[in-house]
């Protein structure tokens, strides 16, 4: 089974984002882009499937300029991906999801066969969760989202999985090829070992221009990017004595927040 996992470079969780000079996108200067948790889970799922289905291969694909994609692809290689492909694009981070999907689809098609296309639940930065479905559409693949517990039934040559839905779960099976969006991190992604990290530094990265798909005018253009205003009204209770702090908290909840009479 040829498994392709799309991995998105997202700003490191601790980074302090600012708007760029034109106020339309985050300023990426000095920001470190990493493989985010949801996508780590997707890579983990791919590796588990590869282990279960002999002869399978895992291919990581990421879209963006090399300054953002390469570290993320190397992280996917260090975790165990067999190959890594950069869909080169100079789109800003958190760009239009349809343009991203077209760019990814071009690179995925150019890379080679794909039986299963995996996506994390959503990106760790804009949390839109749109690229998976749109990429599947661009490649003409059926798409199922919110999937957990993906298994391959070799005898029937079908994927079996469950899907979280409101108030319950559905059990599904499907032939390949298929695109799957995973439910949030339900597996426990492995940590890349030091030797694997060193090997990943020397592995080649395949590169495909993400165009012309991505070059097609994006369906949406960001007009303004701004940080939310700093939160107001939070009050810290500095304390030494927990009892005194608790009574102060109760007084504030009663008199200022008026949570209870």
């Amino acid at each position: 089974m040829e498994i392709v996992v799309c991995v998105k470079p997202v700003p490191e969780a601790e980074s302090r984002l600012r708007a760029n000079a034109s106020g339309t996108a985050p300023d990426t200067d000095g920001v470190k882009f990493v493989l985010a948790g949801y996508d780590e889970s997707a890579v983990e799922q791919a590796l588990l499937l590869r282990q279960a289905v002999p002869g399978s291969k895992v291919h990581a694909v990421s879209l963006g300029p090399p300054s953002r994609t390469d570290e993320v692809l190397r992280a996917a290689l260090a975790l165990g991906s067999d190959s890594a492909t950069a869909a080169e694009s100079d789109a800003p981070p958190m760009a239009d999801p349809i343009a991203t999907a077209r760019g990814l689809a071009t690179a995925i098609a150019a890379r080679g066969p794909c039986d299963l296309l995996l996506f994390g639940k959503q990106a760790g930065d804009d949390e839109e969760g749109l690229v998976g479905g749109a990429t599947a559409e661009a490649l003409g693949l059926p798409f199922v989202g919110f999937v957990v517990d993906l298994r391959f039934d070799a005898a029937a040559s079908r994927l079996r999985f469950r899907r979280s839905v409101e108030r319950g779960e559905e059990s599904w099976e499907s032939p390949l090829p298929l695109a799957v969006g995973l439910q949030q991190a339900w597996n426990d992604p492995r940590t890349a070992t030091l030797p694997a990290i060193l090997r990943s530094r020397k592995a080649p990265l395949a590169r495909h221009a993400a165009g012309p798909g991505a070059a097609v005018a994006a369906a949406s253009v960001a007009e303004r990017f701004a940080l939310p205003p700093p939160r107001q009204g939070a009050k810290m209770i500095a304390y030494r004595d927990p009892q005194q702090a608790a009574s102060q908290l109760v007084r504030l909840l009663r008199e200022e927040a008026k949570v209870f009479p």
Binding site: D70, E71, R74, A75, A78, T191, A192, L194, I197, L198, R201
Partner: peptide
């Protein structure tokens, strides 16, 4: 970048 990724591994651990 290689040194950074080794440092990041150690930091995470």
């Amino acid at each position: 970048p290689e040194a950074e990724s080794l440092r990041d591994l150690a930091r995470k651990f």
